[in-house]
Amino acid sequence: MSIQHFRVALIPFFAAFCLPVFAHPETLVKVKDAEDQLGARVGYIELDLNSGKILESFRPEERFPMMSTFKVLLCGAVLSRVDAGQEQLGRRIHYSQNDLVEYSPVTEKHLTDGMTVRELCSAAITMSDNTAANLLLTTIGGPKELTAFLHNMGDHVTRLDRWEPELNEAIPNDERDTTMPAAMATTLRKLLTGELLTLASRQQLIDWMEADKVAGPLLRSALPAGWFIADKSGAGERGSRGIIAALGPDGKPSRIVVIYTTGSQATMDERNRQIAEIGASLIKHW
């Protein structure tokens, strides 16, 4: 067993022997301040990774656009098919120029040779490549099948209805392509620590998230040296922004954090800054 596999296998073990965790309302004060600064709703939840206990939450059962955070769930569904012998990570998928959609920095470079399922998941999570996500959605049967996968996990809230990039439209009061912070946090925890996926697939999923290259201005910008984070960000229309993450000190994750916002007129930089400040408060009061 590799060191990384050992780390993920012992996530519940280490967490069980940690000192009790206590909620700190100071972080919620910052979440509410972010709402004021952005002029928009902000949803927040913080779960203990081992027990699933909610440590703090704000608007945990209000719907927010998922945006690209759905790509972690998508690759979880792909990995479940791999575990069941219905898919192979090494299978190569070929596609054409007509398949390319807006923001496809990886797939646009491989029109000639195609990409493997493993490479597509890596591109979808680490670079948020939209064509990679659409190609992977095709392998599982489309958005409705991802929703069905989530329902089978016990998540009857999260739903995907459309493809990239239309799913980022974020129309107010439109339930399409949305989740709730509580539902997303619980589902992410199941994917990373539950028995739904094999140990190898859980490790692969967290490795992809740990290698995320496009979430630097968010929670990662607030992390002290030595902290662990595996995350996936999302951005959408109407001032929408979000991030889902597993993080913790001492090089291992111990909490799940989900943050979503929508309806702001603020710039992307300002949305990023507010999420980073929430992260800084979380870490300060850990």
Rank of each mutant, 00 (worst) to 15 (best):
T179H: 00
Y44S: 01
L55H: 08
A246I: 13
A124Y: 00
N168E: 04
T193G: 15
L100C: 06
A132E: 00
L188D: 00
I283C: 09
R271I: 11
W227D: 00
A222G: 11
L282V: 13
A245G: 09
S104P: 02
A148P: 07
R118V: 10
L38W: 06
S80T: 12
V117P: 04
F64A: 01
Y260V: 07
S68L: 00
D36S: 13
L167R: 02
R92V: 15
R271Y: 03
T178R: 02
T69L: 02
A276S: 14
E61D: 14
C75T: 10
I229S: 03
R271E: 05
R241H: 04
E164D: 01
G90Y: 12
L196I: 15
L55W: 07
L73S: 08
R241K: 06
H94V: 14
L197R: 05
H24V: 15
G85D: 10
P65V: 04
K284C: 10
F13E: 02
M115D: 01
F149N: 06
N98F: 15
D113M: 10
I275P: 00
Q204K: 10
A183M: 10
K32G: 09
P181W: 00
I206M: 14
L74K: 01
S281N: 12
L79Y: 02
F149A: 08
P143H: 08
H156N: 14
A266N: 11
V42Q: 01
P25I: 09
D212S: 07
L47Q: 07
Y44N: 00
P224K: 07
G226Q: 09
K32M: 15
L28M: 12
T131G: 15
A9K: 12
M153C: 15
Y260T: 04
L160K: 02
I243D: 02
L28C: 08
R241Y: 02
S240T: 07
C121V: 04
N168Q: 07
D212H: 05
D269T: 12
K232W: 00
N168R: 03
Y260A: 02
A280Q: 15
L73E: 03
I229E: 02
S254V: 12
S57I: 07
I259C: 08
F13Q: 05
D48N: 07
A124I: 05
S240D: 05
R220D: 03
L218T: 04
I275M: 11
R255L: 05
A16H: 14
T69A: 03
L219A: 03
A84G: 14
A16Y: 08
V106Y: 08
V29L: 12
L218D: 03
M184N: 01
I259L: 10
G251S: 11
T69E: 02
L10P: 08
R7T: 14
V106Q: 10
A40R: 03
W227R: 00
P253T: 08
F149W: 14
Y260E: 00
G251E: 11
R220A: 04
E119R: 05
M67W: 01
G263Q: 07
W163C: 12
V8D: 11
E195H: 14
P249W: 04
A124D: 01
T267F: 07
M209I: 02
G216W: 08
P12H: 13
G52E: 07
S254G: 13
I140K: 03
D99P: 05
S254M: 14
G234Q: 01
A235Q: 04
A77W: 06
L79E: 02
A222R: 15
G39R: 14
L135W: 02
N134L: 02
H285N: 14
P143R: 04
A215D: 02
M184A: 07
D161Q: 06
K32L: 11
L79D: 01
P60Q: 13
R7A: 10
P224G: 07
G141T: 05
H24E: 12
A148V: 13
L167W: 01
P25Q: 13
R91K: 10
E175A: 14
S57H: 12
A266Y: 08
A183V: 13
T262I: 09
V117L: 11
G194Q: 12
M180R: 12
T262V: 08
F70I: 06
S80M: 12
I259N: 01
H5T: 10
P12W: 12
L47A: 08
S240P: 02
G248F: 01
D161E: 08
I45R: 03
H24Q: 11
Q37T: 12
G90I: 11
A230N: 01
K30H: 07
N173L: 15
L100V: 09
P65T: 04
G248Y: 01
L160D: 02
A230Y: 03
M66G: 06
N173Y: 12
A182W: 13
P181V: 07
S240K: 01
K71H: 00
L191S: 04
E169R: 11
T187P: 00
E277Q: 10
E56A: 12
A185Y: 00
L19T: 15
A23P: 07
R241E: 03
I171F: 13
G43N: 00
P217F: 07
V21N: 06
P60C: 12
G52V: 04
P105V: 07
W286I: 05
R202D: 03
A280L: 11
P217K: 14
A183T: 12
Q97L: 14
W227H: 02
S96C: 10
V106I: 14
S2L: 14
S254T: 14
A133V: 02
G114K: 04
A222Y: 09
S201G: 10
T179R: 00
Q203D: 11
A77P: 01
A246D: 03
G236C: 03
T139P: 04
T158I: 02
H151K: 15
L146K: 00
P217L: 09
L188K: 01
Y95C: 03
P20R: 13
L111E: 07
T179Y: 00
A185L: 02
P224R: 06
L199T: 11
G114A: 05
L111N: 06
A148D: 14
R41Y: 10
P25H: 13
G90T: 13
A15V: 14
L10K: 05
D36G: 15
D48G: 06
L49C: 08
K190S: 14
D207Y: 14
A230M: 07
I229P: 00
L137F: 09
D231R: 03
L223I: 12
D231V: 04
F228L: 06
K190T: 14
M127Q: 11
E61S: 12
I11D: 02
M153A: 13
N272K: 02
V8W: 08
G251C: 09
P181A: 07
M127G: 06
K190A: 13
G39P: 05
I243S: 02
N134S: 04
P165N: 08
I171N: 15
H156R: 13
R238N: 15
A77T: 10
E62A: 09
V106G: 06
D155L: 01
L74E: 04
M180L: 09
L205Q: 02
L74N: 02
S128T: 01
R7H: 13
P172F: 09
V21S: 10
R159I: 06
V42C: 08
A15G: 15
S68N: 00
L219C: 04
L55V: 11
T187C: 09
M66E: 02
S68K: 00
A182I: 15
G239R: 02
E175T: 14
V42W: 09
A225I: 13
A230W: 03
G226C: 09
V78W: 03
I206W: 13
A230V: 06
G279N: 03
K30Y: 05
L282N: 03
G251V: 07
F58N: 15
G226E: 10
T158Q: 01
Q88S: 13
D48A: 08
A211I: 06
R202Y: 05
F17Y: 12
L191A: 06
R92L: 12
E169A: 14
C18L: 06
L150W: 06
S2Q: 13
M184Y: 09
R241W: 02
Q86E: 12
E166R: 12
A266H: 10
D207E: 14
